[in-house]
Design a binder for these strands. Structure first.
Lengths: 194, 194
DNA sequence: CTGTTACTAGTACCAAGTGCTAATCCGGAA
DNA sequence: TTCCGGATTAGCACTTGGTACTAGTAACAG
């Protein structure tokens, strides 16, 4: 016996996890067993065939693409918005957002949430950030739910420049504040209520 | 003739673009033609069969997973670095980084490049951004290569606070500037050469 | 009436399997 | 030693979703 059956099946699982493209024949060669043995192993472990594996991987891709397309527009989920006035978005910080070493969210994710919210709240197709002044008040850990509140400062806004203030909190504690100076491409309308 | 051939082939392409999972049989039904006609259409248009389509989609996934993992650590490629002094990184702006409507790079990508470079240049395992003051000087279009230069401002740094200035350019033209106040978790060492 | 184009139909074949039956091998217990 | 059982291997029929190729039909154009 080259490798005990149980061990082989464990390895088989791992192998396919990180490379789902292997055929039974290739696997058989890799473990120096017959193709039939590999089939039995897959059967016992409930591992689907190559074509099914590719299908699920491909499905995941399509899903992620949709997700990333959406998130390309706004980082976080907008849960409330009044154009030209205020908006709120929500971002769940996952392991993907943090430094591995200390579990603290990387600054640019908080910035991205705030900045894209500032863009979204502007009632303009072509709003751009000109400058911004930001403060990372308190580190944010993985697992936190960050709520960003954006408010348009009408009084400080002039012509094509608009000031948006964003405050992000976790459990009502401020973790981030930012003042964004936005540039709107189309001239300010007096009142845009249709 | 249900739908003129050319039109059908165009639709076929679009359809498969956004749903590569359709079999010839399903497509034949959808267009009310025979399976053979679909095959001919695919042949003429150079559209591969279902299994090949899934394979490429799945491959893309695997690739993107690697990419997004890498980009978690540093946004852009660091091409030069002297710890505690200066660093340079390079970011190629693709369609993924820009607003669809005007092709201008979203601010948070430039910020992310600059911020992660500021973190990287700090000779500290646990550096965090405390605040920053940034300026988007000039819009960046897709296809641009952004070079970010970070410089540690020794003279303005005190204790655990360090100032890092980042200037990003495209073709020697400044597009972004930022001043990052960083917090280092371990106390400043006098000289760390070695 | 003859082409040409578009479409349809049918066959042989392939890859990568499933499902099933039937050997064969090998180690340990009676 | 012999027999049993789990592990392994082999072989065959069948399935999907195709390719490659041949052949036939329908419609319309010149």
């Amino acid at each position: 016996m080259r490798v005990p059956k149980k061990e082989r099946q464990r390895l088989l699982g791992e192998l396919l996890e990180q490379n789902p493209f292997l055929t039974d024949e290739e696997l058989a060669e890799h473990f120096s067993v017959s193709v039939q043995t590999i089939r039995l192993d897959r059967l016992e472990c409930g591992i689907p065939e190559l074509r099914e594996r590719l299908k699920t991987v491909a499905t995941r891709t399509m899903y992620e693409e949709v997700k990333s397309l959406q998130s390309d527009e706004v980082i976080g989920d907008i849960i409330d918005i009044e154009l030209d006035q205020r908006a709120i978005s929500l971002l769940d910080v996952t392991e993907d957002h943090v430094f591995q070493r200390n579990g603290i969210a990387r600054g640019h994710h908080l910035f991205a949430q705030a900045n894209s919210l500032a863009v979204a709240v502007m009632n303009d197709d072509l709003a751009l950030t000109v400058k911004s002044n930001i403060h990372f008040v308190k580190p944010v850990k993985a697992g936190s739910r960050v709520i960003a509140r954006a408010e348009v400062k009408e009084e400080q806004s002039t012509g094509k420049r608009t000031i948006v203030e964003v405050v992000s909190t976790v459990n009502d504690e401020t973790v981030f504040t930012g003042e964004f100076t936005m540039y709107r491409m189309t001239e300010r309308k007096q009142e845009d209520s249709k």
